[in-house]
Design a protein around this nucleic acid. Sequence first.
DNA 1: AATAAACTTGACCAATTGGTCAGATTGGTT
DNA 2: AACCAATCTGACCAATTGGTCAAGTTTATT
Lengths: 231, 231
Amino acid sequence: MKRQNVQFLNVKRVRKSVADGSNFKQSATRNKKKEAILVAAEKMFADYGFRGATTQVIADLAGIPKANLHYYFPTKEALYSQVVQNIFDIWLEAADSFDQNQDPASALASYIDKKMEISRAHPNGSKVWANEVMHGAPIIQDYLETTLKEWTISREAVIQSWIDEGLMDQIDPKHLLYMIWATTQHYADFVHQVETLNDGQAFDDDAWEAATRDVKKIILRGVGLSVGDDK
Amino acid sequence: MKRQNVQFLNVKRVRKSVADGSNFKQSATRNKKKEAILVAAEKMFADYGFRGATTQVIADLAGIPKANLHYYFPTKEALYSQVVQNIFDIWLEAADSFDQNQDPASALASYIDKKMEISRAHPNGSKVWANEVMHGAPIIQDYLETTLKEWTISREAVIQSWIDEGLMDQIDPKHLLYMIWATTQHYADFVHQVETLNDGQAFDDDAWEAATRDVKKIILRGVGLSVGDDK
DNA sequence: AATAAACTTGACCAATTGGTCAGATTGGTT
DNA sequence: AACCAATCTGACCAATTGGTCAAGTTTATT
């Protein structure tokens, strides 16, 4: 994953609208094309990893020549970086709804619901994220150390306050968070294994609902909270 | 990941001892060298993925010329396949101790203990496995459909029987298994993220013990079992 | 209509890399 | 010592692939 900043100099040729998103004129079709590239890239990076995905195949999948892809994203790394950041944003956004200071049971249940929905709607994004982190987060290390770190600390504090108030069992909040992340993302990252063990069938609506229900049930009860009805 | 079976024909040159493990003569040094290659390969595949890892760097890491590596493993894919199978074996072996028909609490606690130990001892193996499954299991699909499938069915049955006997809560056993897999492997696959959120520090003995304790606590209580002392 | 900027693309290149091979070297066996 | 199989290795090759570039075409603006 060698840096080749040299080529970025050529971008000057293209002026502002390419360098950032500040051009509002023809951005409609432009964004549509970028979006198509990003969708194709997300799938390829998820299925083959950074090195395994080729810009040629991504371009094919997006229905454009490879040279055109490089007009929008100067390097493969820039494209990959954008894909990872997009997932990170979705992740964080959903995570925000976690701490709309409700009671712990509602907050955690809502967070798990959201995370399961993301796993269903964006399995490729989740896979790319997992890949990136597994390989040492060469591209998004900054985000881990800043945004994710801060987010985690603040949520740990919320959970700890619930514990201190006696609303839930005494556990290290970070391990609860990890369990929620790991379990919900498992249904995206390991969807191939899950489907193979499901007789080769993808989860239907009922199966997703059942999975979400059981995950919530085990985790909520696991920390001393009651699920839905009772209490 | 194109198959190139042609080159396997050349292996005839090398006779039996290379084709399989049936030669007992000089297998001592031979196996030691193969082991060094496998360790290096496991690390490279874990850090860079199948395509990202190069046989040249694997050979460097193992301290031998690339050509020598290809003497022991005719293709990169054969080497990768061996790495994945090794992890699978470790996985299954540990999983076996799961069903030494104890009570559910002891069985699950023991299984989680073993899985956490594997995550600590073989993080690279776990990563390679995750990578392989995330990319659609192109190499080990057979294992998923046969060995893993059978193992899972039999364990689901055991858990279901506990439920039927009223020993634990009513949940779909498969989701309990997935949660255990996901959570325990998270500490291997996402070790980089976990360490970043741990102020860049690797887990020490105490941290591993605490993680294992909390994971067991949440999951066991989550399915209506009591942890360790009480009950 | 004229002009310039934005966009598109086929052809091309340099670097990387999995795998080959012929010729050494080593080690055991007679 | 002689022999042979096993092991080792530097040099090499063919295929892949990220990225470039010059020559277009389209689109907005005047």
